[in-house]
Every structure is written in C-alpha cells, then in structure tokens.
Amino acid sequence: MIDSRDMQAIGLCRFSYPALGGFQVEHETIEDRIAFLYAEDRLEERFQLMETVALPCLQAQTDQNFEMIIVIGDTLPKHHVDRLHDITANIPQISIVAHEPKPHRPLMKELINGARKDPKAPCLQFRHDDDDAISVDFFERFREAVNAVPGLLENRSVAFDWNRGIIAEMSADGIAATDTIRNLYVASLGMYVRGGCPLTIMNFRHGIMNQFMPTVSFTDTPMWVRTHNGYNDSRQKKVKPVPVEPLTVEQEAELKARFAIDVDQVRATFS
C-alpha cells in the first residue's frame, strides 16, 4: 500500500467564477450572473473573507504538501485579478486559472484530473470555499486518517468527513460564532481516489457523498469555520438564522490557534 504521505493532494476553489450551473441562486442569462458576481461591493466582501479566513489557514498548515487551483472567470476585471495574485503570492501551493463560462461540473472535474501528476497513482482531493477556513492540521489529519483504514482503500473512492465546526460572522466589532455539527460540509471534507480512477470530488454533491462511497466521519474537535455573510450562495433564499455570540478573549485565542484567524485583522479589515 502507498503511504498517504506520498499521495498528491489536490484542491479546488472557485473565486466568483461565472459557471453555467453550479449556483443555488439562478440568473436568467450569463451576463446577469457575471454582473452579480463582479459587483464591486460583493467582490470587496469576498476579498475581505478570503484574506482573513480562507487563506491564513492554508499558509499555517502543519502539512504543506498540498496544491490548490483557484478558478476565476476570464472577464474578471484586471484590478481584481491583480489583487488576487497579490494576496495569494505567499502561498506557493496556489495556482490561479482563468476560464470562460463553461458548464460547472465538467470543467471542475477536468481541472482536477488535469492536475494529477500520475493518474495511475492514488490521490487525495478537497474543496475550499473562499469564505471558509479549515483547521491548520487538516492535511496532516487527512493523511493520518487515510493510512488508518487500508482495507477501505480497495474502493475506488472514500470520503473523510470532519463534521464538527464553527459558524461565524465577521464585522468591524470582531467575530461572533457558535459551534455546530454538520455532516459532509464542503470544508474539511476530503476524498481518496484510487489510482487509475477518473472520479473527482466534483463528481458529487458534497452533502450526499456518503450515498456513493464509504465515508469515515470524525466529530472530536472543530475542523472548519463557515462564515455567514451577505453573499452566501446557499443563504440567498429564506433560511433560518443561526444565532451567534461574540467570542470571548479566550475563544479568540483558540480560533487563532486552530484556524489562524486573527480577530484584530478581522476588525481592521471589516472596519
């Protein structure tokens, strides 16, 4: 059996990419979708969340052996493209690719499989939203979990789900949050793919992956932060609000240690 520490870990992040499909919020035309995604106030919030939430946890990973593709539209205005390159420059694992609007899942599957250095070798895959964080030991724990279940690796794919996390709201006042458990959320959800198998994590809706493959779940410690913000795709429709409470000083320190989220940076960025 190949040690998971030798497996390529490939991730995918969509940054306001105007896909054909792939959104819960519908638009009549692709022009309407692009206008929504590229609105200056929306993009400013996306950048604020990426800079304070989504990127610091990657830079702080205890296992730096991963790579992540950020997908953008080929019409994203240049000043936003330049800003994205600037804020990701210190994370060498990130590559940014631009595409014209294409059907969502086929393109994402093509990008992940195209990134596999050796399609005949097994690999690890993950998704990362631009407004979420994963724990700083996610890749370390992911590889340990894969090594712990050698019998399952005979399957073409296996999901690994860390389902305990934190819902958080960011503002100039700091961070308000609450603990929760959510099975098969995007963040801290990984997938093992057997060598020679063309499946990708983008073949499946994340919430039902356990219907298609063995799934190993862990609930011992918070492993992700999901931000609720003005432009969550899944929260544009009428949804039940999640009550959150301002973090104590001790909780702020725990969040920084676990997810590299700095409350002082949050206050400064959102002020």
Results as ranks from 00 to 15, higher is better:
residue 224 W to G: 04
residue 248 T to E: 01
residue 189 L to T: 07
residue 127 R to I: 02
residue 125 Q to D: 06
residue 168 A to G: 07
residue 125 Q to P: 08
residue 226 R to M: 15
residue 185 Y to R: 01
residue 166 I to E: 12
residue 209 M to S: 04
residue 120 K to Q: 15
residue 146 V to L: 05
residue 139 F to E: 03
residue 194 R to D: 02
residue 173 D to C: 01
residue 183 N to G: 14
residue 192 Y to I: 02
residue 172 A to D: 11
residue 160 F to T: 07
residue 206 H to W: 07
residue 159 A to I: 05
residue 178 T to E: 10
residue 170 M to R: 09
residue 117 K to I: 13
residue 144 E to V: 07
residue 148 A to G: 11
residue 211 Q to P: 00
residue 257 A to G: 06
residue 200 T to W: 04
residue 174 G to H: 02
residue 177 A to S: 14
residue 240 K to L: 00
residue 153 L to K: 12
residue 167 I to D: 14
residue 147 N to F: 12
residue 133 A to Q: 09
residue 233 D to V: 00
residue 223 M to I: 07
residue 145 A to F: 00
residue 130 D to I: 12
residue 122 P to F: 03
residue 132 D to K: 06
residue 156 R to M: 08
residue 185 Y to N: 05
residue 200 T to R: 03
residue 231 Y to Q: 01
residue 202 M to G: 09
residue 130 D to P: 12
residue 178 T to D: 06
residue 247 L to F: 06
residue 120 K to S: 12
residue 247 L to Q: 08
residue 166 I to Y: 10
residue 133 A to P: 11
residue 155 N to R: 09
residue 146 V to G: 06
residue 248 T to C: 06
residue 188 S to W: 05
residue 118 D to M: 03
residue 123 C to F: 06
residue 117 K to E: 13
residue 221 T to M: 10
residue 124 L to V: 06
residue 167 I to M: 15
residue 166 I to M: 14
residue 230 G to Y: 00
residue 205 R to E: 15
residue 149 V to S: 02
residue 249 V to S: 15
residue 207 G to R: 08
residue 233 D to Q: 00
residue 118 D to C: 09
residue 177 A to I: 07
residue 124 L to A: 04
residue 257 A to Q: 10
residue 253 A to Q: 13
residue 206 H to T: 04
residue 225 V to F: 05
residue 149 V to K: 09
residue 209 M to H: 03
residue 241 P to M: 09
residue 228 H to S: 15
residue 248 T to P: 03
residue 211 Q to S: 07
residue 229 N to K: 02
residue 193 V to T: 15
residue 241 P to H: 13
residue 136 V to R: 01
residue 211 Q to E: 13
residue 164 R to M: 02
residue 184 L to P: 00
residue 157 S to C: 07
residue 248 T to S: 15
residue 126 F to H: 01
residue 124 L to W: 08
residue 169 E to T: 10
residue 248 T to Y: 03
residue 186 V to K: 04
residue 215 T to P: 01
residue 157 S to H: 07
residue 121 A to T: 10
residue 144 E to T: 08
residue 203 N to T: 08
